[in-house]
Write a protein that binds this DNA or RNA. Sequence first.
DNA 1: AAAATAGTGTCTCTCAGACAATATGTC
DNA 2: GACATATTGTCTGAGAGACACTATTTT
Lengths: 279, 279
Amino acid sequence: MADDRFSVPYDPRVYPAVAVTVDVVTLTIRDGTLCVLLVQRGTPPHEGAWALPGGFVREDEDLPAAAIRELTEETGRALGRLHLEQLATYGVPGRDPRMRIISVAHLAFAPDLPDPIAGTDAMDAAWVPVASLGLPNTTSAAPVPAGTAVPVSAGGPAPLLQRSGASHRLAFDHTRIIADGLGRARSKLEYTPLATRFAGPEFTISELRAIYETVWDDRLHPGNFHRKVLSVPGFVESTGYTTDRGGHRGGPRARLYRAGNARLLHPALLRPNREESGP
Amino acid sequence: MADDRFSVPYDPRVYPAVAVTVDVVTLTIRDGTLCVLLVQRGTPPHEGAWALPGGFVREDEDLPAAAIRELTEETGRALGRLHLEQLATYGVPGRDPRMRIISVAHLAFAPDLPDPIAGTDAMDAAWVPVASLGLPNTTSAAPVPAGTAVPVSAGGPAPLLQRSGASHRLAFDHTRIIADGLGRARSKLEYTPLATRFAGPEFTISELRAIYETVWDDRLHPGNFHRKVLSVPGFVESTGYTTDRGGHRGGPRARLYRAGNARLLHPALLRPNREESGP
DNA sequence: AAAATAGTGTCTCTCAGACAATATGTC
DNA sequence: GACATATTGTCTGAGAGACACTATTTT
């Protein structure tokens, strides 16, 4: 049987020097725009460049704990309740010029939050619209599908990028990591109720639809979406209340819901317009 | 606010000593049974216990490359064409008694292959039925749902576990990793054509159905499955040939197919009998 | 009053699953 | 010949998407 001889002499130094970090792709929706939390690096390498919050995993610290710690450390404030899951691990040699670094990326969904504050090791921190990052197409996410009529607040506030003067080139392979995180998020909205994590504790069906439309960058039929959401068991549950007023531009008051207890959506809400066939 | 106790100038040696390993969950189907490739450890810790093939990532070695190297090293032969993808990363402090070890687990799908050979650091290597591992329920995977009528070769060869005299207790947290891998595999069969990776280059629809039935541990309706598979664009394509003979117990010759060029199945083949609702 | 939005009803088409039927093999 | 399997056909019900319609509220 297995012997757990801890007494075995073991010398870590015979193994290659590597470091393990965590990086966190935190997504939220601000003013109808999907944004990711970035920090401006205050130390080399890539000093001054924008990057995902992250850093070295400490001894005796679990990976999710490290992710949460880095998030609060580098943005100067607790981000409240959020969904956090592991995304993937990136370890291509040379991805960090200092040494071999294996980065365990995480994905977080957060409701709309106030502007972050630069913390340790960060010169600045900001919510940056993912559309401004020029991500490679994950689904149909062209850099900025401008003509397609982006939902909500057209002509709203200028991209935060401009306020921060950030470059579109992110540090390390973080552009790729964000693209992967966005792909995962889009997929997860289909078969989990995680869209509710982008909303506050109570929300209307229209607000929920706006979340889907923003993340999927697509228009959804209001009526069908409404009926569909209510038909999936455990997706949302009624609070019994309604909003105080109608929408900005008219319309009746909407009923308020909170997240239900389902962990998976049955049946799923499938994305529309998947490209048909291949060569 | 953030404390600046860690704004240390960079020096790799000040960061915790960690090692990074890869582990590989390789699944195949032998005699109608879903099996995972395990090796018997020849070195402490857990010497003599069965574990996933894996080991330390070398300098300047990419993660997938390390996974493939460990696979061939520890099983003494190249496993030919197989599908390999990253599964998840496990890093709970204490999961390895030696030191802090972060393990990047991978998942591989292989067609039926000959018995493996023990290689470096391994006393033995074998295909082990996952049903014998007492995995926690991932979907409806009770340790061994004996009464449910397991497809194919009932009363076939005894489990390899008995031949090898292996314990059901795997080393480290490998039971959990295998459970996660199995869950991923079950899910991937729904929306990707990866089931074909368990088959040879040419296969019949019945053989494909047997793969689904084995991985999902469920019975599928032959007629409906047949029509469904052929209706999904790019899932399979006809070779124009048929088998040389009918089945063991009769029946006409079956047409042979090869894997198509689709990377996703539209529409997906959903698992039957998902448990309805929750409390 | 005009316009926008919430919520419901209806129709059609696709698809999953149950069941049946026929042809073609093996033992 | 008895029986198993491959393949196709038919029917039913669930669900997605297109459209239409009513009620309610804001400007």
